Simulated scan of single mutants.
Amino acid sequence: MKKAENIIVGISVGDLNGIGSEIILKTFEDTRMLELCTPVIFANVKILSFIKKNLELTAQLHGIDKLDQIVIGKINVLNVWREGVDLNFGKNDDNVGKYAIKSFVAATKALKENQIDVLVTAPINKYNIQSDDFKFPGHTDYLDKELEGDALMLMVQDNLRVGLMTDHIPVNEVAKKLTEELIIKKINVIHQTLVQDFSINKPKIAVLALNPHAGDNGVIGNEDDKVLKPTIKKLFDKGKMVFGPFPADGFFGSGQYEKYDAVIATYHDQGLIPFKTLSFGNGVNYTAGLNKIRTSPDHGTAFDIAGKGIADHNSFREAVYLAIDIYNSRLSHAEISKNPLKTKEKQL
């Protein structure tokens, strides 16, 4: 197993006009972080040095031109490009968006090629990243294409884990997407993630209903009775601890979520509104279901406070912590899978 500081955390810089660079630099100003991992920021060392000076930060940056030049215990900055970039903090700029994608694509390539161990992505602007070469709504969809597996957005804060059956689609398309096939696939991904990435042996999973009051026996829609309930029962009968569908309106307010290892929402806002209400500023967005590990903070570019030095870096730091924890959990899970008798010996 790797020593802690030898875990290489690749970081895509996000939108340079947003708070991404600030929260990255603030996270690693604390030199204790370098005892947990070695960061590699995919950007340009001159630009990050400019931002650092502008924000009066103290992180010591180490520029490199190739990934084989990484120095353990330093804040490495891989020069993905050489030219200067005009920055205007807080402004939406298509040109700056191109550099956010250059950073992200380069970091994803390094992840695929095992040159970095995990990837943490700083926030991008979904509008200025679109081009002929990049036609994805965001990070998750691109990673789903480039990496093996089935991507699923899982929001994490301590023991609160909220996954999504559907994510960045219009609300009027949600019901049509909720097929038995999709539900089974998403629940299986969550189950495997809880076992492999969070070391939970027999996870309990709650599923939220699509309609108010879970449809009230068909009075308010029939999707819950006709699709969700029978599919959940089928999975439960096969041995998975899956429960629901639960009416979503009181599920979080009553504390019911605390009885489960994960909750699956049927659509984006159904899951994200309660999650961010309970955890805002400390939550992490984890792309579950892939053969590689990617996390990100639970917020966006925050153009309104960019360049002011007041951005809170807690969520980004938590994203780094979670990526490292999952990396170690996967190593342990792989070891146990190879040597199941060792686990039994420990229990004896």
Rank of each mutant, 00 (worst) to 15 (best):
Q196P: 00
V120F: 03
K342Y: 05
A209G: 13
F243I: 09
V105H: 08
A100V: 08
N95A: 12
H333P: 00
Q69I: 03
S12Y: 07
L34P: 06
T301I: 14
V263R: 03
K126T: 03
L55F: 06
A106S: 15
N54C: 02
K3Y: 11
F136V: 10
Y99W: 09
N76C: 09
E35M: 08
I336G: 01
N88Q: 13
Y127N: 12
V120D: 02
G149Q: 07
V174L: 11
A288P: 01
K26W: 01
G253L: 14
E29S: 12
Y127M: 01
E146A: 15
Y321P: 01
F136S: 04
Y127K: 12
M153G: 13
I326V: 15
S279A: 15
A110N: 03
D93K: 01
I75R: 01
N114A: 13
Q270H: 10
I326R: 02
G255P: 06
N95F: 10
G250D: 12
D249P: 00
F280S: 05
E83T: 05
D261V: 11
A151I: 05
I264Q: 00
F42I: 11
P137V: 10
D224A: 09
Q270I: 11
K112L: 15
C37R: 00
L87K: 08
S315G: 02
A306S: 13
Y142W: 08
P39R: 08
H62S: 05
N222K: 15
T166R: 06
F104T: 09
P247S: 13
K109L: 14
L348F: 12
F42N: 10
K240A: 06
Q115Y: 09
S332M: 13
K2M: 14
I264V: 15
T266Y: 01
A209N: 03
N88E: 14
L348A: 13
P245V: 15
I129G: 04
E35D: 13
P247I: 14
K259F: 10
I200L: 12
G255L: 11
S332E: 14
K3H: 07
N92M: 14
T193L: 06
V195K: 15
F236M: 02
T295M: 02
D298M: 06
E181G: 01
Q256W: 01
V80N: 07
L25C: 03
R32D: 08
P230T: 04
T343S: 11
K186T: 09
I51T: 09
N328W: 08
K145E: 14
E258S: 15
F243C: 06
K204P: 01
D269K: 07
A122T: 04
K3L: 15
G18N: 10
N128K: 08
P170N: 11
V171E: 02
Q157P: 00
I324K: 07
N76Y: 05
E181R: 12
I190F: 01
I324H: 06
A43H: 03
I190T: 14
P247R: 13
R330N: 07
D141T: 11
I305L: 05
N114H: 12
K204L: 04
L322S: 10
